[in-house]
């Protein structure tokens, strides 16, 4: 089947029910999306399909109908997305393992709401867990990314 990931197209020969996460990681070698739970409980595997965040561990590759963006496609160390820049400025990461998913979730959310309240942020981000407890810094980073996106 054909997949479009980060603007590149790939031909993959896999079962329809293989979760997108494992196609990305083991077939395409795209390792930004992480495996944490496999049952849509942690958010470490979050990617975008046509700009919307999905849990790639629980999204069958056969159901994908759209452009896939992983954190590698969101921005790079040389060309950072505003959310990534905010994550660096506020030094959010500890182990960092959840952060690809956190950043992808935040980027999708801010694309629809650049004026989030604290409650909006909590609602949007509470399905992404962080074992290291970086939640307070994620809140601050999202507000600062939102300000950047508003051009403030």
């Amino acid at each position: 089947m054909q997949l479009s990931v980060n603007g590149n197209s790939y031909d993959v020969d896999v079962e329809d029910d293989m979760p997108l996460l494992w196609v990305l990681r083991d077939e395409l070698g795209i390792h930004g999306p992480k495996y944490g739970c496999g049952i849509a409980q942690c958010g470490a595997c979050t990617v975008h399909i046509d700009g919307e965040s999905v849990r790639s561990c629980s999204y069958a590759v056969g159901d994908v109908d759209g452009e896939i963006t992983t954190i590698e496609g969101l921005g790079t160390p040389d060309a950072l997305h505003a959310v990534q820049q905010a994550w660096i400025t506020h030094q959010v990461a500890q182990c960092g393992y959840c952060q690809s998913g956190q950043i992808m979730e935040a980027a999708a959310f801010l694309a629809t709401n650049i004026n989030p309240t604290d409650t909006d942020i909590d609602d949007a981000m509470s399905a992404n867990l962080c074992r290291c407890g970086t939640y307070p810094r994620i809140r601050v980073a999202i507000k600062s990314a939102a300000a950047t996106l508003r051009g403030a």
Partner: peptide, 21 residues
């Protein structure tokens, strides 16, 4: 200080044990 791993951990470019190829 800026942590040495902060850029890689904010861009999905940090490699972990699970990412070995």
């Amino acid at each position: 200080m800026q942590r040495l791993d902060i850029v890689s951990k904010s861009t999905g470019t940090q490699s972990y044990g699970i990412d070995v190829v």
